[in-house]
Structures are given as C-alpha cells and as structure tokens.
C-alpha cells in the first residue's frame, strides 16, 4: 500500500517558503560547532520522558514539521502507548482522522483513500524521496530515527567520559542546537542560497529555512511559546520517536543491575567460602 497525504498542498505552500536549493559545499564533518548540551528529563539512569513535553513536541511536529518531514515508522497507536506522549485513545483517533491513507485494492481492483486508523503509520508528506527533492530542493529527512542518526562525534576525551556520565543525548542536543542556532545576521557569500547554521553537521549552510518563530504555536498548558521551548519540545518528541522503549529499557536495566549486584555479592561470598581452604 502506498500512502499519500492530504497535506501535500500545505507542504507545497511551505515549500515555497523554504529555500529551493541544496545545502552549500559540504564541509568535512567535525567542523561544525559542538551542540549545546541541555538538561533532558530522559537522561540518566532514572530518566523518563516528560509526557506534557512529548505532547507539545507532537504539536510542533504536527503543526509545523510534518508539512515536509515524514514520521513514517510511527503508527498513530504509538501516541497512546505507555512510555510515550500517552495521548488518550479519543485524542489519537481524532489525530488519525486528520490523515488519509491509500488503501486497497477494493473488490473492483481500485485503490481508494480512507481515513487513517490507529494501526496506520503516519503517511509521509511526499510519496517518495524523489518527489520530496523535486519539491524542496533537498530531502527533508524522516523524523522517525533522526534523534539517533544525528549524533556528532564527541572526540577525545569526551567519548571516554561519556561512558561514566551516560551521556547519549547528543541527538536531541544537536537537533535543539540546530533549530535554535540560525544566525540571521549572517550575510551569505555570493551564490550561496542556504541558511547559515554553525551547528549543521554537513556544512555551514542548511537548506531548511529557520522553521520556528516565537508564538507560532499556541500551547494549552501555559508553557512558554518561544523558539527555545518549541525546539526543546520537538527534540524530545523526536527522541521518543527514535527510542520509544527508552523508559522500559532504563527501568528494566535498573532492576537487572540491582539483581546482578546482589547475586554477584552472594557468588563472591560463595567463592570465598569455597576457596577458603586453599592458598592460591
């Protein structure tokens, strides 16, 4: 089944607002500024997602990013599953009703469009990558895994320290930094049509125009309606999309480690007892 979105029109409108050129000459990775590290609720041993933040992040995605970016590995049902934004079923059904997916063939052999169901995945804004490039000039990457796929290397000694600090939020840090890192004052050199962003991993100029503006999304929960907050929320949402079982993983990890520590203590005492009669 191929999926087409009813939102293609909207995306075309947005596309006009976005630079229709690929990013400028590729700079070697590592030349970009390191992301600014943020405090994330999901960091650390006991980290969990902030439901309200994920819901706001979804709102930013749905109202803004989804015009160009797909979220094709996430099903609508995921939005109500434990460990995620945990929308109510009624809310998710309402969300799904905004999307249309191609289904079929019916008994006449024709494909038909129908409202999305909970089991459907988010239909992408463009039918395929080529269509996206044709419309946008560059491929707006799928959001599903981006928070895990964009992890700037940390270099020495950062990568050693990360083992002990459990730092693995470089994906959301990068996305947050990128979204808030545009330099509007920057004057492009002649012939450069991209948007200057010192955090961009694949060069200095990114095809995506600054996507966020203060006040453009109305939050119901009274959170600040700023670029900074929008970027933070959508980054957290993308982290959940990339790692939906993070909470379950960390919770199970804590139990397993506790078990192994106690079991290890018992085994050690047993070992001491067994070897107590033997010089070694």
């Amino acid at each position: 089944m191929a999926f087409f979105s009813s939102r293609s029109l909207k995306s075309l409108v947005i596309a006009a607002a976005v630079a229709l050129v690929p990013a400028g000459s590729a700079f070697a990775a590592g030349d970009s500024k390191p992301p600014r590290m943020q405090d994330w609720s999901f960091a650390g041993v006991f980290g969990t997602y902030d439901r309200a933040q994920l819901q706001r992040g979804y709102q930013v995605f749905a109202e803004n990013c989804s015009a160009c970016h797909a979220l094709s590995r996430i099903a609508f049902r995921n939005l109500m599953e434990p460990g995620g934004p945990e929308f109510s079923e009624a809310e998710v059904r309402a969300i799904a009703a905004n999307y249309f997916v191609m289904d079929g063939p019916d008994s006449f052999g024709d494909m038909f469009e129908r409202e999305a169901r909970l089991s459907d995945r988010f239909p992408p804004p463009f039918p395929n990558q080529e269509a996206a490039v044709a419309a946008m000039g560059a491929y707006p990457p799928d959001f599903s895994l981006l928070a895990k796929a964009r992890a700037p290397t940390r270099g020495f000694p950062g990568f050693v320290i990360d083992i002990f600090t459990q730092y693995q939020e470089n994906g959301p840090d990068y996305i947050y930094s990128l979204l808030t890192g545009y330099d509007e004052e920057h004057v492009n050199p002649e012939g450069e049509l991209g948007h200057y962003n010192p955090y961009f991993m694949a060069g200095e100029y990114i095809a995506m125009a600054p996507p966020l503006f203060d006040g453009m999304h109305v939050y119901q929960d009274g959170s600040p309606e700023t670029i900074d907050q929008y970027a933070r929320d959508v980054s957290a949402f993308m982290m959940w999309a990339a790692e939906p079982h993070l909470e379950q993983r960390k919770e199970m990890g804590f139990r397993v480690m506790a078990f192994l520590l106690i079991f290890g203590g018992l085994v050690y005492m047993t070992k001491r007892r067994v070897w107590s009669a033997v010089d070694h």
């Binding site: 079991f263 018992l266 085994v267 047993t270 007892r273």
Partner: peptide
C-alpha cells in the same frame, strides 16, 4: 544456606 541462596537466586 549460602550455597542454596546463591543457587536459588541464580
């Protein structure tokens, strides 16, 4: 007791 506890936990 130690051996049994260890084996049981294992």
């Amino acid at each position: 007791f130690l051996f049994i506890a260890t084996a049981a936990m294992g």
